[in-house]
Simulated assay, not measured.
Amino acid sequence: MADRTETPTPRRLEEAREQGQVALSREVTSAAVLLAAALLLRGPGSQLGVAFQKVLTEQMAALPQAELTLRTVQQMGFRMAVQILPPLGGLVLALLAVGAMATLGQTHFLWSSKRVGFDFKRVDPVAGFKRIFSARGLVEMLRALLKLVLVGWVTYSFLKGEYPGILALSQFDLPTATQRFFDLLVALALRVGGMYLILAAADYAYQRWDLMRNLRMTKEEIKEEVRRSEGDPQLKGRIRSQMRRMARGRMMANVPKATVVVTNPTHLAVAIQYEEGMNAPKVLAKGAHHTAERIVAIAREHHIPVVQNIPLARAMYKRLEVDDEISPDLYVAMAEVLAYVYRMQGKTPTPARASMDGR
Rank of each mutant, 00 (worst) to 15 (best):
M1V: 15
E6H: 04
P10W: 11
P10T: 02
R12F: 12
L13G: 11
L13W: 15
E15Q: 11
R17P: 08
Q21V: 02
R26A: 14
V28N: 06
S30C: 03
L41S: 05
R42S: 07
G45M: 07
G45I: 02
V50H: 14
Q59Y: 12
A62Y: 06
A62K: 08
E67Q: 08
R71N: 13
M76C: 02
M76N: 05
G77Q: 15
M80Q: 05
A81V: 02
V82Q: 15
L85G: 00
P87M: 08
L91R: 02
V92L: 15
L95H: 13
A102G: 08
T103P: 05
Q106I: 03
T107W: 01
S113I: 13
R115E: 07
F118E: 12
D119V: 13
K121H: 08
A127W: 10
F129G: 10
F129V: 00
I132S: 01
I132E: 12
I132Y: 10
F133E: 08
S134N: 06
R136I: 04
G137Q: 03
V139R: 07
E140F: 07
A144G: 04
L146W: 09
V149A: 07
T155P: 09
Y156F: 10
K160D: 05
G165Y: 00
D173Q: 02
T176A: 14
F182W: 15
V186Y: 09
R191T: 07
G194Q: 06
M212N: 12
T218N: 02
E225V: 06
E225M: 14
K236N: 02
I239P: 05
Q242W: 02
M246E: 07
A247H: 05
R248Y: 03
R250C: 14
M252H: 01
V255W: 00
V255I: 13
P256N: 13
K257H: 15
K257G: 11
V260E: 08
T263C: 03
N264E: 01
N264G: 13
T266F: 08
H267N: 02
A269S: 09
V270I: 11
E276I: 10
E276C: 10
N279T: 15
N279V: 14
N279L: 11
A288S: 06
A288N: 06
T291Q: 13
A292V: 04
H303W: 14
I304T: 10
V307F: 09
L320E: 10
E336G: 11
A339H: 05
Y342A: 14
G358E: 07
